[in-house]
Amino acid sequence: MKRILDWLLPNLCLWCLQPLASTEIQICAHCNAQLPRLSLQQDQLGQCQIASNLADFQLDGLLSVSWYQLPWSRWIVQWKFHRDLAAAQALLHQFKIACQFWRQLGLSADAVAYVPMQRWRRWWRGFNQAEQLAQVAAETLQLPLWHGLQSTQRWHQVGRSGRLRRQHQRRFMLQTEQVPRHLLLIDDVITTGSTCNQLAQLLKAAGCDTIIVLTLAITPHPSMPARPDI
C-alpha cells in the first residue's frame, strides 16, 4: 500500500521538486548541501540592523541559521501563513541541526523561552511557530521550556515598516515573578529586533542577566546587499 501511495503521491524535495528517497527532512541531500547558511558559530548582532537602530539595547547575542532569503523566506511564509506541514518539518529539522551544533560549542542557559503571540492570532493560526522552534531547542539543548511571557497587544507587525515597528511599543507581561537568570529567546525571523529587545527589557528589569536570541533567519542591514555572500 505504501508503495502505491508513494507512486500516486510522490514526496518531492521542497527546493528542486525531485522525488525524495526519505521524507524525514523534506529536502534532498543535494539541496541540503547547497542551502545558504550563516556561520553558526558567529554572533550576528553586528551583521544586521538590530543594535544600531534600537534604544536601550538589551540583547546579549544573536545566532541565526541564515539570512532571510530564498529558499528560507519562501518556506517560512508557507509554514506561517499557509500551514504547510512539509515546510514546517523541513525548517524544524534544520533548526534542530543548528541547535545540535550550538550545543557542541557549549551554548547553554537556564531555560528556553519564545516570543509570545497574541491570543486571537494564536487561535486563528492554530500554532505559534516560535513556540514550536523553542520546543526543538529545549529538547536538543536539554533545557527546560519556559512559558513565562505573554502578549497583551492586538496590534500586529506584518506589513509594517521598520520605523513603525520600532516606534510602536508592543506590550508584554510576565506570567510569573521569577525569571531565569540566563535565557535563550526564540523567534522564527528577526527583522528589526524591536520585539525581542522589548522582551529583553522586560526580562532584565525582572532580574534576568543574559538573553541570547536564536532564530531561523535575520534581515540584513540595509547597507548590505540584498543577498549577502555567506
Rank of each mutant, 00 (worst) to 15 (best):
Leu143Ile: 05
Leu185His: 11
Leu185Gln: 12
Leu54Val: 07
Cys48Ala: 09
Phe127Trp: 04
Asp209Asn: 14
Ile186Val: 15
Thr215His: 06
Leu141Gly: 10
Gln175Leu: 10
Gln135His: 14
Gln26His: 13
Arg171Tyr: 03
Leu145Lys: 03
Ser108Pro: 06
Ser39Glu: 11
Asp110Ile: 06
Gly207Glu: 01
Asp84Ser: 01
Cys208Asn: 13
Ala51Cys: 07
Met117Val: 02
Gly126Asn: 03
Glu24His: 09
Leu14Gly: 13
Cys48Asp: 10
Leu35Thr: 06
Trp123Phe: 01
Gln129Cys: 06
Phe57Ala: 03
His168Asp: 12
Ile25Leu: 11
Val189Gly: 02
Val213Gly: 03
Lys204Asn: 08
Leu12Trp: 12
Gln178Phe: 09
His168Cys: 00
Gln169Ala: 13
Ile4Cys: 14
Leu199Pro: 15
Leu174Arg: 13
Ile27Gly: 04
Phe81Trp: 09
Trp124His: 00
Gln104Ile: 13
Trp7Leu: 12
Leu45Thr: 01
Val179Pro: 09
Gly148Pro: 14
Ala206Glu: 12
Arg121Asp: 00
Ile230Val: 14
Gly159Leu: 07
Asp6Tyr: 09
Leu183Glu: 15
Gln201Asp: 03
Thr23Val: 08
Ala87Lys: 01
Gln100Val: 02
Gln94Tyr: 00
Leu59Glu: 04
Phe101Arg: 04
Thr195Ala: 02
Arg3Tyr: 11
Gly61Pro: 05
Arg165Leu: 01
Leu70Asp: 12
Glu177Met: 01
Ala33Leu: 08
Ala200His: 06
Val136Asn: 04
Phe57Gln: 09
Asn53Cys: 07
His182Tyr: 05
Leu45Gln: 12
Trp124Thr: 00
Ser223Tyr: 07
Asp229Met: 07
Met117Ile: 03
Pro71Asp: 03
Arg103Tyr: 09
Leu149Gln: 04
Gln94His: 04
Asp60Cys: 02
Pro71Ala: 03
Asp60Arg: 03
Leu8Trp: 14
Ala130Pro: 12
Pro144Arg: 01
Ile27His: 04
His221Lys: 07
Ile4Trp: 15
Leu59Tyr: 04
Gln118Ser: 01
Asp188Ala: 05
Ser151Arg: 05
Asp43Leu: 02
Glu177Pro: 07
Gln26Tyr: 02
Cys196Thr: 15
Gln153Thr: 07
Ile97Asp: 08
Trp155Met: 00
Glu139Arg: 14
Leu202Asp: 10
Arg83Leu: 01
Ala21Met: 10
Ala206Leu: 04
Thr215Ser: 08
Pro228Trp: 08
Gln132Thr: 14
Trp7Phe: 15
Ile211Thr: 10
Ile212Pro: 02
Leu45Asp: 10
Cys208Val: 10
Asp6Cys: 01
Met1His: 14
Cys16Asp: 14
Lys204Ala: 02
Ser39Cys: 08
Pro228Met: 00
Val158Asn: 03
Arg166Gly: 06
Asp187Gly: 02
Leu70Ser: 14
Val213Ala: 02
Gln135Ser: 13
Ser161Pro: 00
Ala138Ile: 03
Ser64Ala: 15
Asn197Val: 03
His168Phe: 09
His168Ile: 03
Thr192Glu: 02
Thr191Ile: 10
Glu131Thr: 02
His30Gly: 13
Ile230His: 14
Asn11Arg: 13
Ile25Pro: 01
Asp110Arg: 12
Val112Ser: 04
Gln153Lys: 00
Leu199Arg: 11
Ile212Gln: 14
Cys48Val: 11
Trp146Val: 03
Val112Lys: 05
Asp209Lys: 15
Arg227Cys: 08
Lys80Ala: 00
Val112Asn: 06
Trp15Asn: 13
Thr176Met: 05
